[in-house]
């Protein structure tokens, strides 16, 4: 009798309801092992993945050293592997994409939550989410055949006339380049920013909003001075997540940036990002170039993994704060 009840207790404990760290009863050993085996296989695959990229780039680090990070010339034909132009282009396109996408994304989230009538909310939200479903290569194609002519004839001359041909809108215009890549990226990260910021904005306590309104603030004042500050941690999380996506986006950027690894002199210049260089040069690479591309992959992995880890911390903290 006592034996039976204690075995039931063990089963319940082994069930994970109390933590799952207790050793399982015999009949459950198979299950206990199999879910851990699944996790173990994937964990091992991740270790292999990180190791493969470290290992691949090893010979590049030993032969070029820190020069890979600081070198200003990326030219495989002369065995110059300096990733600075690529890192700069990656950072610039991401920054400009954020400059465009963040205000539009936040405005969209606020509109969806506070201005749209109830019956429009779901359809409009689904439409914005559809933006995330379109594959990256289709955005590239769209950029190439729809945006390039438009940029070339309308947008770039207009921007150039605003600064009088000065920085950052200087130099020859041809449609391709950093600016077009940034615009395509901003479209691609918009749904990410909207989805996350909508969640955190919707989580702002009603009392705060009603309190502000009752104190005589108008709707817009409430949104700008109460809702946005209250949701700021989560909004930073959304922005960081968008940045992570933009930093690593490959195919769409490779199609519109011009694939010309050089230190960008203006937003109109062509360039190449870390990921677009891997995509365009990997096919013909061997030996030292392959190792250098491995080093680019490592740089990209370190940057995006830390940005994503930061985004995860921010969004979790924000959503827990209101839960």
């Amino acid at each position: 009798m006592t034996e039976e009840s204690s075995s039931t207790k063990t089963r319940l404990l082994s069930r994970g309801l109390t933590g799952g760290i207790h050793p399982p009863v015999k009949s459950d050993l198979g299950y206990w092992l199999s879910i851990r085996a699944g996790a173990l296989i994937f964990g091992a695959a991740i270790v292999l993945f990180v190791w493969s990229i470290l290992h691949q780039s090893l010979s590049a680090w030993t032969s070029h050293g820190i020069h890979i990070l600081t070198g200003t010339v990326w030219s495989p034909s002369t065995s110059n592997y300096g990733a600075l132009p690529l890192i700069l282009a990656t950072l610039i396109t991401t920054a400009v994409a954020l400059l465009v996408a963040v205000p539009i994304g936040l405005g969209t989230s606020l509109t969806i939550i506070f201005f749209l009538p109830q019956r429009l909310k779901t359809p409009i939200t689904s439409l914005v989410e559809l933006l995330a479903a379109v594959p990256s290569v289709v955005y590239g194609l769209w950029g190439l055949f729809v945006l390039v002519p438009w940029m070339n004839t309308t947008i770039e001359p207009k921007l150039a006339s605003i600064t009088g041909g000065g920085f950052p809108f200087n130099g020859a215009t041809n449609g391709f380049g950093l600016l077009l890549a940034s615009i395509v990226l901003s479209v691609m990260i918009l749904p990410t920013i909207v989805a996350i910021s909508r969640d955190v904005i919707a989580a702002v306590p009603h009392e705060q909003i009603e309190g502000a309104l009752s104190l005589g603030a108008t709707k817009s004042q409430t949104l700008l001075k109460v809702v946005l500050p209250e949701a700021r941690t989560g909004i930073f999380g959304a922005i960081t997540l968008g940045a992570g996506r933009a930093l690593g986006e490959t195919i769409a950027v490779a199609m519109v940036i011009g694939s010309n690894p050089q230190i960008p002199k203006s937003l109109f210049s062509t360039g190449a990002t870390l990921s677009s260089t891997i995509a365009t040069e990997f096919g013909e690479a061997s030996g030292a170039q392959l190792a250098a591309l491995g080093a680019l992959a490592l740089i990209l992995m370190v940057i995006t993994a830390s940005v994503n880890a930061g985004a995860r911390t921010l969004t979790r903290r924000a959503l827990r704060g209101h839960a």
């Binding site: 993945f49 996506r245 690593g248 490959t250 990921s275 992959a297 990209l300 992995m301 995006t304 985004a311």
Partner: peptide, 8 residues
């Protein structure tokens, strides 16, 4: 969130 090209 890692760039898919790294898996390539």
């Amino acid at each position: 969130g890692l760039p898919s090209i790294l898996l390539g």
